[in-house]
Deep mutational scan, measured.
Amino acid sequence: NNDALSPAIRRLLAEHNLDASAIKGTGVGGRLTREDVEKHLAKA
């Protein structure tokens, strides 16, 4: 659900052409954090 993404996370996802649903969020309520996105990028 993109409504739960902060603007910074949306921008980071867009810059790397990532789909938020492909990344498991570890923030409050399962929200994506910058660390989640960076860890996903490091794996790729």
Rank of each mutant, 00 (worst) to 15 (best):
R11E: 15
G25Q: 03
A4C: 08
D36I: 02
E35Q: 12
V37S: 01
D19C: 06
H16P: 00
N17R: 06
S6I: 05
L13Y: 00
E38D: 09
S21M: 08
L41V: 13
A44V: 14
A4Y: 15
L13F: 02
A14D: 15
E38Q: 09
L18T: 06
R34G: 07
E15S: 07
L5V: 11
A20N: 04
L41G: 02
V28M: 10
G29V: 04
G25N: 03
A20W: 06
D19N: 10
H16G: 04
L41A: 06
N2E: 15
E15Q: 09
K39P: 05
P7R: 11
K43M: 12
A42G: 10
S21W: 04
T33S: 06
R31W: 06
L18M: 09
A42S: 12
A22V: 14
E35S: 12
A8D: 15
T33I: 06
N1Q: 13
V28A: 12
P7G: 08
L13I: 07
A44R: 11
E35V: 09
S6T: 11
N17V: 05
G30I: 02
S6E: 13
H16E: 05
A14G: 13
R10W: 01
A22N: 12
E15A: 07
G27D: 05
R31Q: 14
L32T: 05
A22S: 14
T33M: 07
R11F: 05
P7V: 10
V37G: 01
L5N: 06
I9P: 00
T33A: 03
G25W: 00
G25E: 02
L13K: 00
L41H: 06
G27W: 00
G27H: 02
L13G: 01
A8E: 15
V28P: 14
A20K: 07
L18R: 01
N17G: 15
L12A: 11
L32R: 03
A22G: 09
G27C: 01
L41S: 03
I23W: 00
S21K: 11
G25I: 04
R11C: 06
I9Q: 04
K43S: 12
L18Q: 04
L18S: 03
P7Y: 01
A8Y: 05
G25S: 06
V28G: 08
G29W: 01
N1P: 10
N2G: 13
L18Y: 03
G30Y: 00
E35T: 10
E35I: 09
S6M: 06
I23K: 00
L5G: 04
A20Q: 08
G27K: 02
V28Y: 04
L41N: 02
K39T: 11
L13W: 00
R34V: 15
S21C: 06
R31I: 15
N2P: 12
G29F: 03
D3Q: 11
A14K: 10
D19L: 11
G30M: 00
A42R: 12
S6L: 07
G30S: 05
A8S: 12
D19S: 12
V37L: 09
A44K: 13
K24D: 07
A22L: 14
E38K: 10
K43R: 11
R31H: 10
A22T: 14
P7L: 05
G29L: 08
N1R: 09
A4Q: 14
A8R: 09
R34H: 12
A42W: 03
D19V: 11
L12D: 11
L13E: 02
A4K: 13
N17E: 09
D19A: 08
L12F: 03
A22K: 13
N17T: 05
D36V: 02
L18F: 04
H16L: 08
L13H: 00
K39A: 11
K43E: 12
A14H: 09
G30L: 00
A20L: 09
T26L: 04
L12G: 06
D19H: 08
E35A: 11
A22D: 14
R34K: 15
A20M: 10
L5E: 08
R34C: 07
K24P: 09
L13D: 02
N2H: 10
A42I: 12
T26K: 03
G25M: 03
K39E: 12
A4E: 15
A8K: 08
A14N: 12
S21A: 12
A14R: 08
K39Y: 08
P7H: 08
R10F: 01
A4I: 14
K24M: 11
L32D: 00
A20I: 14
I23G: 01
I9W: 06
I23N: 01
R10M: 03
P7S: 09
L41Q: 02
D3S: 08
V37H: 00
S6N: 09
H16A: 06
I23H: 01
D19T: 09
A44M: 15
A14P: 02
D3N: 10
A42P: 05
G30K: 04
T33Y: 00
T26E: 03
L5Q: 07
R10D: 15
G25L: 02
R31A: 14
V37E: 00
E35L: 10
A22Q: 15
S21D: 10
A20E: 11
G27F: 01
V37I: 14
G29H: 09
I9V: 12
G29I: 03
V28L: 12
R10A: 13
S6K: 05
T26I: 04
T26W: 01
T26F: 01
S21Y: 03
L32A: 04
G30N: 06
G30A: 05
R10S: 12
K24A: 11
S6P: 13
D36W: 01
I23Y: 00
P7A: 12
H16N: 09
P7I: 10
A44Q: 14
K39Q: 12
R31G: 09
S21H: 07
L18V: 10
E38P: 00
D36K: 00
D3T: 08
G25D: 02
I23D: 01
R11Q: 15
N17Q: 10
N17A: 08
N17W: 06
L5S: 05
L12M: 13
A22P: 03
K43F: 07
G30W: 00
E15K: 08
L41Y: 04
R34Q: 15
E15I: 07
